[in-house]
Design a protein around this nucleic acid. Structure first.
Lengths: 209, 209
DNA sequence: TGTACATCAGTGAACGCGCGTTCACTGATGTAC
DNA sequence: TGTACATCAGTGAACGCGCGTTCACTGATGTAC
């Protein structure tokens, strides 16, 4: 603040370094403000200690920065779920671990989670790129959930006869719980873990032990 | 367009008429664009065939217009649910009717639904007013759902032992389904009604007939 | 019935601001000779 | 080893725009006499 510092220039071949620093800055800004619309190109540049035009060497426009932030957040939530499931072999325990990990990510990184499915974006603008992203990375992640339910069913631990449909409702329910809990903190929420397990067990049709 | 028309002035005592026309204009604009941020004070004024400063006689600021739009949408979804349940006496059928009505509203009026729980708003700004609104009208609507489940349980048609918690997860799941279906239209959604009934019956613990 | 006047719904000009994007440029760094 | 030079990451000024909000005002309408 006040001190006018000129950024120390990156060495030659390291064009990607600034590119990553820009996404860092945008992600940090998002985490702070929680508002997608506060990620203006100029605000991101200020945060990265850079002048606004410098960004154009790395991103086509403001929208492209947002795409990069979303892409990174996608990777983060997938990693969070996978790390939670790591080493868990029991099918039901594995389903629980993954789902609880998903919900934990949404709870602990609310702004990052929100940007994944918030969909505040102009529907007119670049639907192809957005669609591709969602289809590819999203469906890959979704298939993990389908498999988890199918594995439970194969092991006789779930009554699911349509793992795809059951995964769909389970995912929708988890998303709804995550969204509402962060949107309505004043609501008198019952015990969180009880809600989460009720959703998982009932929608994945887990057999009562 | 191009034709500069001066608005025909409202008669004396009818100050509320313009007030309603402003909310009309804002709601229409929201329905068209689907983006909360496109409801700029000036855009609303243009849509209402009014100059921007005229709005200040009726609303304190831009945010107040949004509050009015949200308030109206709340009334609309409550009316939609109630009209769907009207005349249905069977407890389970009544629960189904209300929930399907909720989901139908979300599907047919996606932008209005989104503004209810979208929560894209500055968390710093006027949390008290927002909180009041949510607590009062929101919890009244929510209690309808709790009662519906409790009635099913009392009639032996549901195994719910905690209607409040079950209503919470059911609501969250419905919200998630509504949000995702409108956010990810390219997802290969299974049969909609099957999903909806699965969510309702499993989370409200409706007994299989 | 006729006229003067107070009311007040709505206007139009102006302000300062942050925005996205463009353009010509600068100057440290690595390389060729 | 020393020097001239091309590269290119990043700068700084400028553009036009829509925004929220303020201010002094206008002029049709209802009312008091």
């Amino acid at each position: 603040m006040g001190v006018k510092s000129v950024r120390e220039r990156n060495p030659r071949g390291q064009g990607t370094r600034l590119s990553e620093e820009i996404v860092d800055a945008a992600s940090a800004l998002l985490e702070e403000t929680g508002r997608e619309e506060s990620l203006s190109l100029r605000a991101v540049a200020r945060r990265a200690n850079i002048t606004a035009p410098s960004i154009y060497a790395h991103f086509a426009d403001r929208e492209a920065i947002l795409d990069a932030v979303i892409g990174r957040a996608f990777g983060e939530i997938i990693a969070a779920v996978e790390s939670e499931r790591e080493g868990v072999t029991d099918p039901v325990a594995s389903l629980h671990a993954g789902c609880l990990g998903y919900l934990r990510f949404a709870r602990e990184r609310p702004h990052r989670y929100r940007v994944l499915f918030g969909r505040d974006r102009d529907p007119q603008a670049r639907p192809p790129a957005r669609g591709e992203l969602d289809e590819l990375v999203g469906s890959a992640a979704f298939n993990v959930l389908v498999d988890a339910i199918a594995t439970c069913a194969a092991a006789g631990r779930s009554d699911s006869t349509d793992p795809f449909a059951d995964a769909t409702v389970l995912w929708a329910a988890m998303h709804g719980l995550a969204s509402l809990q962060q949107g309505l903190p004043l609501f008198p929420w019952p015990d969180r873990e009880q809600l989460e397990l009720a959703i998982i067990n009932r929608l994945a049709r887990v057999r009562e032990s």
